[in-house]
Each structure stands twice: as C-alpha cells, then as structure tokens.
C-alpha cells in the first residue's frame, strides 16, 4: 500500500474524531492499525505508527481563537476577496501581508508563526498577479489590455 493511501485514511479519521469526539478514537485506531502492516517500507510503517498515536489529541477542543488571530484573519480574508484591477489587488495583498506581520509582532511567540502563515497563500496569489504563470487565459487577440 502506498503511504498516501494510509495518509488519506488518517486524514479522514482525524476529521471524524474532531467532528465526533473521543468515541471515534477507538474505531479509527483499529482501522488504521489494520492498514499499517500493508505499507511498503519500514519507514512508512514507523511514520504510520506515530500518527496513530496522535489520534487521541484530535478529540481535544482546539485552542480558542485569539483576538489577534481574529484580526489577522479579517485582514487576510478581505485581501483574498478584494475586487479591483490587477494593480489594486496586488496593492491590497501586499498591504494585507504587511499588516498581518505587524499583528504577529504583537502576538506571543507560540502564536505568531500561525498568524504569519496566513500570508503564505496571498503571497503566492500576489506573485501570480505580478507575473502570471498561465500560458494562455484568453485568446491573445481578444485581450483588451
């Protein structure tokens, strides 16, 4: 069995435990422990065993969202949804990234990286607006710009 197949089952089990709570732990452990011996390498089986041990932690409620994280999420989502020209959207995303990093500077050390990480996707979307990767999006002779 490819590890990705096990990993997908682990992902589903984790989501189920988060959704349904501790009652879902034992069935998930049983299911994944039955799959693990089918993995192709010793390394895959070692990783699988370690992941199975983590399952109970997913029944714990997540840490409440902090005020700073809430503030950063609002900034990130506004930039993601921002309308306007390409230039305006680039500016919105760059400004959002700047503001999110400033918010992270006010956060405790164990929370700041998670806040900073909200910029990972908009940084890439901003990059793509500046230098599109797409080979052809509209017929070139119909491009109005």
């Amino acid at each position: 069995m490819q590890f990705s197949e096990f990993n997908n089952a682990f992902s589903a089990a984790r989501r189920r435990i988060r959704r349904e709570g501790s009652d879902a732990i034992a069935p998930a452990e049983e299911q994944l422990q039955a799959m693990a011996p089918e993995l192709e390498s010793e390394e895959d089986r070692r990783v699988a065993a370690s992941l199975i041990q983590k399952l109970p932690q997913y029944a714990l409620p997540p840490r409440p969202r902090s005020a700073l994280m809430h503030e950063a999420l609002l900034v990130e989502r506004a930039a993601y949804e921002a309308a306007g020209s390409v230039e305006e959207r680039i500016a919105a995303m760059a400004e959002a990234r700047r503001r999110i990093f400033e918010i992270a500077e006010r956060a405790p050390a164990d929370e700041a990286p998670g806040i900073q990480a909200l910029t990972r996707v908009i940084e890439h979307l901003e990059d793509d607006l500046r230098d599109p990767v797409w080979p052809l999006a509209v017929p070139p002779d119909s491009d109005s710009r």
Binding site: P135, V138, S142, D143, S144, R145
Partner: peptide
C-alpha cells in the same frame, strides 16, 4: 504561448 499572451483582463467585448 508567451508572456504577452497571459491573462491580464477580460476578453474584448
């Protein structure tokens, strides 16, 4: 495909 042909706006019309 070329850089000049990449997405920059809506189709004409």
């Amino acid at each position: 495909p070329s850089a000049d042909a990449r997405i920059e706006g809506p189709p004409a019309g």
